[in-house]
Amino acid sequence: MVSNVKSIDSVLMLHFATYSANPPLYKILEQASTLGGRPIGMVDIEQILAISPLYKIVRVDELLTIGFQTARKDRDRISAFLEDLNHWIKTNTNKLEMSKVELSTIMTRHTSPPRRIMKPRSARSSPVKKKKFDELKNMKSKFEFLEKDAQIERSNNQGLSLLDRIKLKESKAKEEVSAKSLETKYQEYLTGKVCDVYDIIYQLYKAQPDQFKSFSMARIIQVVKDSLEHPLDEQEISDIVKLIALKLIKYNLIEKNNIQILRVRDLNREEDLKLFELTPSCA
Rank of each mutant, 00 (worst) to 15 (best):
N257L: 05
R154E: 13
A17W: 07
E183R: 10
I152K: 15
S10P: 06
A123M: 08
P39W: 05
Q208K: 10
A50N: 08
I254M: 11
I200P: 00
G36C: 02
I45D: 01
E30Q: 12
N268R: 04
K250D: 15
L63K: 06
K180R: 13
T91V: 14
K180Y: 04
L54C: 07
T111W: 06
S33P: 08
D233M: 04
D272S: 00
Y19E: 15
S126T: 13
A21I: 06
E270A: 11
P53Y: 01
F133G: 05
R77N: 10
R219W: 08
R75L: 15
P39F: 09
E255N: 03
K225W: 03
P113A: 14
L275F: 15
P113V: 11
V128S: 12
P280S: 07
L146W: 07
E83D: 14
D149Y: 14
M217D: 03
S181Y: 08
S181N: 06
I28S: 01
E170C: 04
S141H: 09
R265M: 08
Q211I: 08
T279K: 13
S161G: 15
E97R: 09
T279Y: 15
I261R: 02
K256P: 06
V60I: 14
F81T: 00
P24E: 04
L12N: 01
S125N: 12
I117M: 11
T184F: 15
I200E: 03
L103H: 02
F68M: 03
N157R: 11
E255Y: 08
Y251A: 09
E153N: 08
L262Q: 00
Y202M: 01
N138Q: 06
G36N: 14
E102S: 13
H15P: 07
E188S: 11
K225N: 09
I117E: 03
L246V: 04
L278V: 03
